[in-house]
Simulated assay, not measured.
Amino acid sequence: MKIYYDNDADLSYLKGKKIAIIGYGIQGRGQALCLRDSGLDVVVSEMAGTPNFEQAKKDGFNPVSAAEAAAQADVIQILTQDHVQAKVYTEAIKPNLKKGKVLVFSHGFNIRFKQIKPPKNIDVIMIAPKGPGALVRRMYEEGKGVPCLVAVHQDASGNALKIALAYAKGIKGTTAGVIETTFAEETETDLFGEQAVLCGGVSELIKAGFDTLVEAGYQPEIAYFEVLHELKLITDLIQERGISGMRRGVSNTACYGDLSRGPRIITQKTRKEMKKILKEIVKGKFAKEWIGENVAGRPNFDRLLKEGDEHLIEKVGKQLREMMPWMKK
Rank of each mutant, 00 (worst) to 15 (best):
D8E: 01
G257D: 09
L304W: 14
T90V: 02
N121S: 10
Q55D: 00
E186K: 02
G193C: 04
R271Q: 12
A160V: 09
S251G: 15
V295P: 04
K276A: 14
P132E: 05
A48T: 07
A168I: 04
V75I: 15
G173F: 05
G317Y: 06
E215R: 09
A134F: 15
A151T: 05
A184E: 13
G292T: 00
E221Y: 12
A216L: 05
K329F: 14
Y13N: 08
I22M: 08
M246V: 10
G23M: 10
M323T: 15
L320D: 01
N96S: 02
D41L: 04
E215A: 09
T235M: 12
I243F: 11
K117P: 00
R303M: 13
T175L: 06
T235A: 12
I125H: 07
E221P: 08
F109P: 07
Q27F: 04
R36H: 03
A86L: 01
A134C: 04
T187K: 05
A296N: 13
Y140I: 04
Q319I: 10
M274D: 11
R271T: 03
P132K: 11
K288H: 12
E293C: 11
F53Q: 01
P119W: 10
S65I: 05
I21N: 07
V152F: 08
T270D: 15
P299E: 05
N110W: 02
V197D: 01
M324H: 13
H107K: 02
Q268F: 03
F301Y: 14
A151E: 08
A71G: 08
R137T: 00
I265C: 09
L11Y: 03
A166I: 04
L161I: 08
P119I: 11
G100A: 03
V202C: 11
R36E: 05
Q154K: 13
L40Q: 07
K276F: 10
R261C: 13
A184P: 00
Q195W: 08
A223I: 03
D74L: 00
K285I: 03
R247E: 14
I122E: 08
H83E: 15
A56V: 07
D302Q: 14
L135D: 11
A67G: 10
A92K: 13
E314I: 09
G209P: 06
